[in-house]
Amino acid sequence: MEEFFFYLFASVTVGLVLLMIVQDSPVASAMCLVGAFFGLSGLYVLLSAPFVAVMQILVYAGAIMVLFVFVIMLLNLKEHELVYDRMNLKRVVVLFIGLGLFAFLTKLFLRIPKVEFAAVEASFGTVKEVGRTMFVNYLIPFELIGILLLVGLVGAVLLGRREE
């Protein structure tokens, strides 16, 4: 049963991400990405991390992607304004390098010996445990990440500000 759901969510995620790349319309791309986030969220649930799963939907699908779609809609691109990628020699070479890298990684991946992981305890992944990990065990790294994000935010505002 678990395996079935894993393959279901995994194929949904991978399939929608592929669809996102090949899509012409930016809004359709964004919606495929939203769908892929749902697949990811399902995978998190299978990994007994319900909190991360809900956060995935709440933050990525519910907030960040809404902003993405909002901006895309605000630009309101017309069909003829979209630039389509054409195949040329450079792109073909890059494609083959990418495929080679993929084959190499697959080969490495298949060599990894199978390891049995210990089962996690029942409280793993609940809000309480995540909170304890973040705010007790790793408080200083957590705060540092917070400051880093704040710096990024201020930087973005500064860069995006209109020249007076």
Binding site: F51, I57, G62, A63
Partner: peptide, 19 residues
């Protein structure tokens, strides 16, 4: 376990239909 977060996540998705 994260009931109220679930409701918040779902209400935040409602905007997609309208958009």
């Amino acid at each position: 376990n994260a009931g109220i977060l679930y409701t918040l996540a779902m209400t935040s998705l409602g905007v997609y239909g309208i958009m």
